[in-house]
Design a binder for these strands. Sequence first.
DNA 1: CTGCATCCAAGGTGATACTG
DNA 2: CAGTATCACCTTGGATGCAG
Lengths: 135, 135
Amino acid sequence: MTRHDPASVPVPVVPSRVGDSAQCVALGQIIDRVADKWAVMTIGNLSTGSLRFNELMRRIPGVSHRMLTLTLRGLQRDGIVDRTAFATVPPRVDYALTELGKSLIEPLGALARWAESKQDQVLAARANYDTRMNP
Amino acid sequence: MTRHDPASVPVPVVPSRVGDSAQCVALGQIIDRVADKWAVMTIGNLSTGSLRFNELMRRIPGVSHRMLTLTLRGLQRDGIVDRTAFATVPPRVDYALTELGKSLIEPLGALARWAESKQDQVLAARANYDTRMNP
DNA sequence: CTGCATCCAAGGTGATACTG
DNA sequence: CAGTATCACCTTGGATGCAG
C-alpha cells in the first residue's frame, strides 16, 4: 500500500495546489476554454495571420456558423483573439491573435503535434480495446 | 491541398491539411479526448506515479465518481492509461500512464503551465470584457 | 458578410443506489 | 474499494430566420 508523502513526489504536470481547490477549478476553466476543439483549430488557423469570419469557417472543417461565433466570442472575452470591424458594406471583420493569444501558439502547437504524431497509436489502441470488449 | 504558397505562410499550429478534412476530424477527436479538463487533471496526477481510484478522486477537486470512471475508461481505451486490478478484498486497482501516456506529459504540462502563468491575464481580460458589455 | 435569437433534438453530467 | 446502472436535468450544438 503505497502511502504517498506529498513532499517526496515530484512536481505534477498540473501544478495542483491540492489544498487550494479554487486554484484548480480556475485552471480547469481556462483549460476547458483553451483546449476546446474549435478553439484549438481557430487559434491554429490564426497563428499565421488575421482572417475574416468566413475564411475561418472555410478552413475549419465541420464547424458550424454558431459554434465559430461562440468560439470567437469566448476567445475574444479571454483576451486571446482581437476583433476588428470595418464599417464597410458589406461588413468586414478581421480576427487576429493578441499577444496573449500568440503565447498560446507554442504549447498548443506541441499538443497538436502530439495528436498528429501519435494518432496512429491512439486509433490502434482504440480499435484493439473495442475488439477485446466487443468481439 | 492548399493554394497558399508555402514559402509565404509559416506552418500553422494545427498542421491542417485543409484538403483532407478527415485528417482534421481525427485530430479534433483526439484533442477532444486528451484536452478534456478531467483528462488533463488525471494525467497530471498520474505523471508522478500510479494511483488508485480513490486517490485520484481525492486529488482532483470537483470530479464526480462517474466522470472519473468515464475519463479513466476513455484514457484506457486510447492506450494512455494502464489499469491493473488486484484480486484482493477489498479490491485494489492501480492506474498508471503507459509509454504513450508519458509522452503526453510534456505537451500537456506546457499547456498547464501556460494556464497557470497566464491565468491572471485571462481573468482580467474576462472581467474587462464583461464590464464593457454589461455595465 | 457578420452576428444574434430562437427552437429543438441529442448527449453529457451528477446524484443515487446497487453489485462484485 | 471499485465499478455499473438508472434517471432526471440541463447544457451543448445544429438549423434556421432575421437584423445590422
